[in-house]
Design a protein around this nucleic acid. Structure first.
Lengths: 198, 198
DNA sequence: CACCCGCTATGACAGCGGTCATAGTAGCCG
DNA sequence: CGGCTACTATGACCGCTGTCATAGCGGGTG
């Protein structure tokens, strides 16, 4: 949470993700990113000679790694590891944020998809990679919980799809209703997929 | 599908939705909309004195009505009305489009959410309304199929959430994998919700 | 005919965007 | 000291955007 005092480069990537998820890629300016990161404007072209596209790509990659890390931490924190528990934790991260800070932000990966999927090929690939690492982490966790290998992948995709969609609806309605709906409705389905072999 | 020869006003709203769902709201220009609709530029300020915001709002409202209409047609076309059948039809609309025309476009409502939820209050409300009418249509259909009234709402939200998320992933990966995953995994859950009383 | 009204046509404006060019600083190395 | 490298600092450029202002058309109506 604290804008950990790392190098200015990382701060800019972090700030970019932060701004993108609020306003979208198009409405996020380079100067704005530098200002938000309290980084000198001249450093932009030094660290990101590839321009805005490179910065956006790195922000997306950062988000992918961040999501993977969160999944690992959620799994570790579960008293009893169940698929529904993991999903509930993933969703709760968003309900907590919306309760605490308002409905200002969405998922930066979703924003990059909407704004760049058709216009910037490299960004589209970065987004795809981010979804892959995220889904991979969830699928691995599911397998560890006893979900058959051939179902953990699709189920992970369902979880992330439902989460992303619910985030959209929640932001639009300024209400976490959609988020709670997906947790409650999907929980039993997810737990039913573990092949009990105890 | 044919850009039905209605008035220039409707054509512009339609074109706006079309462009927004491809490039996002920020990257869609007013001049571009007029050109795409083969409408005179001067008509923009005549029909949309509220400026771009009004145009975007109407595009979103149009998309909401369109989605509701599609749901009704899907239900009517089902040989045997089941929740999974409706969901499969909703998803198939996207797999068909992606197979036929490539992964160029997403959902305009999602794009408007990402780009305007924080910056334009009226657009956020338009998006919310669009989700409401869409969800309402689906929920009503579910109830008609025998889903208990108190579950049809949340289930409709789950369906639309999963669909929206899967659209994002499919566009990013240029692969309908995510779309097929949600249909197959969610189908049984949906059908299990009908309270058999035959 | 005059008059008005819906619609169209352009040109201008002010602002902001990303990017380039150029010059400057700070510190380490030899 | 000179020189090199990493980073910072600005200012300018050009293209594009949404919006406004103004003027023109075309056809109904009285």
């Amino acid at each position: 949470m604290p804008a950990s005092e790392r190098g200015p480069r990382e701060r800019m990537v972090f700030s970019a993700a932060q701004l993108i998820r609020r306003e979208g890629v198009g409405a996020t300016g380079m100067r704005e990113v530098a200002a938000h990161a309290r980084a000198p404007r001249g450093s932009l072209q030094h660290y990101f000679p590839g321009g805005k596209e490179q910065l956006v790509n790195e922000a997306v990659e950062w988000a992918g790694r961040y999501a993977r890390g969160r999944v690992a931490r959620f799994v570790a924190a579960l008293p009893e590891p169940t698929p529904s528990g993991l999903f509930a934790a993933m969703v709760r991260q968003w309900t907590d944020e919306y309760a605490a800070e308002g409905f200002a932000g969405g998922c930066p990966v979703a924003a990059a998809t909407v704004d760049c999927a058709e216009s910037a090929a490299s960004t589209r690939e970065a987004v795809s990679a981010a979804f892959t690492t995220w889904t991979g982490a969830v699928a691995e966790a599911l397998t560890e919980m006893g979900v058959p290998g051939e179902r953990s992948g699709p189920l992970a995709t369902v979880m992330i799809s439902a989460l992303e969609g619910a985030i959209l609806i929640a932001r639009a309605e300024r209400d976490v209703r959609a988020l709670t709906a997906v947790t409650e409705e999907l929980g039993p389905l997810l737990d039913a997929a573990v092949s009990r072999r105890s």
